[in-house]
Simulated scan of single mutants.
Amino acid sequence: MTERLDISVQTSKVDQVYLKFKHEGVYLDESEGKSMYKISDLTFDLKRYEYFETFHIAGSSRNYAENIGIKITLDDGTYGIGEASPSYRVNGEVVSALMSLQSIIKDMISGLDVREYGKIFKIMDGFSRTAPSVKAAVQYATLDALGNSMGLPVYMLLGGSKSKIETDKTVSIDTLERMVKKAEEFFGEGFNSLKIKVGENLKEDMDKMLAISDATHGSYYVVDANQGYSAKEAIQFAKYLYDHQINVKVFEQPVVWNDIEGLKLVRYNSPIPVAADEGVKTKYDAYQMIKNDCVDFINIKLMKSGLSDALAIIELAKISNVGLMIG
Rank of each mutant, 00 (worst) to 15 (best):
G151F: 10
G151P: 11
V154K: 05
V154W: 06
Y155D: 05
M156Y: 15
L158W: 07
G160A: 03
S161V: 12
S161H: 10
K162W: 09
K162Y: 13
S163R: 12
S163F: 07
K164E: 15
K164R: 13
K164F: 12
I165K: 13
I165Q: 13
E166D: 07
T167W: 10
D168L: 02
K169I: 15
T175Q: 05
V180C: 12
V180E: 12
A183D: 12
A183P: 08
E184R: 15
E185H: 14
F186Y: 13
F187I: 09
F187N: 09
G188H: 12
E189P: 03
E189G: 04
G190C: 02
G190Y: 05
F191Q: 09
F191T: 07
S193L: 15
K195E: 04
I196L: 10
G199L: 08
G199Y: 05
G199N: 08
G199I: 09
E200S: 13
L202G: 05
L202A: 04
K203L: 14
K203I: 14
E204S: 03
E204R: 06
D205I: 06
D205G: 09
D205A: 08
K208T: 10
M209W: 03
M209S: 01
L210A: 06
L210Q: 04
A211D: 08
A211M: 11
A211C: 11
I212W: 08
D214P: 04
A215T: 07
H217A: 13
G218N: 04
S219I: 05
S219N: 12
Y220R: 10
Y221P: 00
A225T: 06
G228N: 01
G228A: 00
Y229A: 11
Y229L: 08
E233G: 07
E233T: 05
A234E: 00
